[in-house]
Amino acid sequence: MISAAIFASGSGSNAEAIVQASELPCTIQLLVCDKPEAPVISKAKEWDAEVFVCDPKTFEDKQAYEQAILTKLQEKHIEWIFLAGYMRLIGPTLLEAYPERILNIHPSLLPAFAGKDAIGQALSAGVKVSGVTIHFVDAGMDTGNIIAQEAVPVLEEDTHHTLHQRIQAIEHRLYPETISYILKERDRKE
Rank of each mutant, 00 (worst) to 15 (best):
F52M: 05
A21Y: 10
P36M: 06
N14P: 04
Q20I: 01
F59W: 12
D117H: 12
L89A: 14
G115M: 05
G12I: 06
H135P: 01
P111K: 03
G144Y: 07
V129D: 09
D187N: 08
A21M: 10
K76F: 07
E37W: 12
L31C: 10
D158A: 01
L110E: 11
P99G: 07
L31V: 11
R173F: 06
C33G: 05
P39G: 02
I167Y: 03
Q121S: 01
E46C: 11
K128H: 10
I170H: 00
K43G: 02
C26D: 04
V137N: 06
D117C: 00
V154N: 01
V53R: 02
S22Q: 15
A148N: 14
Y181F: 14
T159G: 05
L30M: 14
R188G: 01
F52L: 11
L83G: 09
L73G: 07
I179W: 09
T159E: 03
Q20C: 14
I6H: 08
D117E: 05
P39C: 01
R166V: 06
R188K: 15
V127E: 11
V137M: 11
N14H: 04
T58E: 15
H106F: 09
K35N: 15
E157Q: 14
L89G: 14
D34M: 06
L24W: 12
L183W: 07
Q149N: 07
L155V: 02
L94M: 07
E37P: 00
R166D: 03
V137Q: 02
